[in-house]
Simulated scan of single mutants.
Amino acid sequence: MAGFHPHMPATRYSVVAKTLGASMWFWVMYKAKEEGPVVLGLRHPWDGHGHGHGHGHAAPTGEHH
Score class of each variant (00 low, 15 high):
Lys18Glu: 06
Phe26Lys: 02
Ala59Thr: 13
His49Thr: 09
His44Leu: 14
His44Gln: 11
His57Ala: 11
Lys33Gln: 12
His64Thr: 14
Tyr30Ser: 05
Pro9Trp: 09
Gly36Trp: 09
Tyr30Asn: 03
Leu42Trp: 14
Ala22Met: 15
Val38Met: 10
Ala59Ser: 03
Pro45Lys: 07
Trp46Cys: 03
His7Ile: 07
Ala58His: 08
Trp25Glu: 11
Gly3Asn: 01
Thr19Glu: 10
Ala59Val: 11
Lys18Ile: 14
Ala22Cys: 03
Val16Thr: 12
Pro60Ile: 01
His57Ile: 00
Leu40Lys: 07
Ala59Pro: 00
Glu63Leu: 03
Met29Asp: 02
Ala17Met: 03
Phe26Thr: 06
Ala17Phe: 13
Phe4His: 12
Lys31Pro: 00
Gly56Trp: 01
His65Pro: 00
His53Tyr: 12
Thr11Glu: 15
His5Gln: 13
Lys33Leu: 15
Leu20Glu: 08
Thr11Met: 13
Leu42Ala: 11
Ser14Lys: 15
Glu34Cys: 00
Asp47His: 10
Met8Pro: 01
Pro37Trp: 00
Val39His: 09
Pro6Asn: 11
Gly56Ala: 02
Met8Gln: 14
Val28Phe: 15
Glu34Leu: 07
Gly21Ser: 14
His64Ser: 15
His51Ala: 05
Pro37Met: 04
Ala17Gly: 12
Gly36Met: 06
Lys33His: 14
Val16Gln: 13
Gly36Glu: 08
Trp27Asp: 03
Glu34Met: 06
Val38Tyr: 01
Met1Gln: 08
Val38Ile: 15
Leu40Gln: 08
Ser23Phe: 05
His51Ile: 04
His44Glu: 14
Gly62Val: 10
Pro60Glu: 05
Leu20Ala: 06
Ala59Ile: 04
Gly41Ile: 07
Thr61Trp: 02
Pro37Phe: 01
His55Val: 11
Ser23Pro: 01
Gly36Ala: 07
Ala17Thr: 10
Gly36Arg: 07
Glu34Gln: 08
Thr61Asn: 07
His55Ser: 12
His53Thr: 15
Val16His: 09
Gly41Lys: 01
His51Tyr: 12
Leu42Pro: 00
Lys33Asp: 06
Glu63Val: 11
Ala10Thr: 09
Ala59Trp: 11
Gly54Ser: 08
Glu35Asn: 08
Glu63Ala: 04
His55Ile: 12
Gly52Leu: 04
